[in-house]
Write a protein that binds this DNA or RNA. Structure first.
Lengths: 142, 142
DNA sequence: AAATCCTTCACCCGAAAGGGTGAATTGAAC
DNA sequence: GTTCAATTCACCCTTTCGGGTGAAGGATTT
């Protein structure tokens, strides 16, 4: 960045010197002052635009996508869903039957049924498919 | 955009005229030509930078996310799922019972059960929760 | 015309899911 | 130590779901 500024300064000084040199060399003095100034102004305006673009164009936009699932613990507490119930909910969403969930968690089928019943009450649904749908919507499961 | 260019042109002309006027008014001619030119150059460089920024800063980055669901018709055909079956699948995924789907489609419960049975065969699953999961994974439903 | 597929519906049976009630155990909180 | 929520399990009953079989009508293709 500092390097760029120095480079521009040097270029500017060199150009001014060049102009003065041309002035004597080719008798630019003969031209009307207005035209002379206009050329100078336009030249430096263009230079400025170019410089301005180069100073800002390098802003690289980096979009970082975070993990696509963040557990909504607030809803979880709000609905009063316990750890075990949430666990059952996760397996349920993976398409397991109550019996399979019971085997996974090393508990009886009746226990799983109790958990599912409580889940349906807390989620205000009456079928497991609806429970899964609502739980996904509320970000309780991926 | 055209308006902006015209505005800049007018401003430039006005400034040049102002400089020439100042020249006679305050005998700027007495100052060294180098200083005079430098001031002019710096001024127009700054003007150019400002103009350049204004011409480009308004590039608004619009990230348009397309519809997040595109039906995978290839899989649909590959698995041989019919229109009606797909329709049943959609309602199923919304958490409706077979009876509710039957009411929605104005057919009997038995018909819906036939469709679901065929769906399970084609999707190679044995429960509706699994069917929904697999169908979503294969992009057959949103 | 025959074959094929889709759609519709029926009946039967067993398995799974859902709803209700009750109760024992445990661990944390008061 | 008592209260409370969470977890565990049991029993009952009804509804829903899933699997199997069969069949009739319609559209499309061969």
């Amino acid at each position: 960045m500092r390097k760029t500024i120095v480079a521009y300064a040097v270029a500017l000084a060199a150009l001014i010197w060049l102009l003065k040199w041309l002035e004597f060399r080719f008798m630019v003095r003969d031209l009307s002052l207005e035209i002379y100034l206009t050329i100078l102004a336009v030249f430096f305006t263009v230079l400025g635009i170019w410089a301005g673009l180069n100073l800002t164009r390098k802003k690289i936009v980096t979009i970082t996508l975070g993990p696509d699932f963040i557990l909504n613990e607030f809803e979880l507490n709000k609905l009063g869903i316990s750890k075990r119930e949430h666990e059952v909910l996760e397996w349920m969403a993976k398409g397991l039957s109550n019996q399979e969930i019971a085997d996974k968690l090393f508990v009886s089928l009746n226990t799983v049924k109790t958990h599912t019943s409580n889940l349906f009450l807390k989620l205000e649904v009456s079928r497991r498919t609806q429970a899964i749908q609502k739980a996904k919507q509320l970000r309780l499961i991926p």
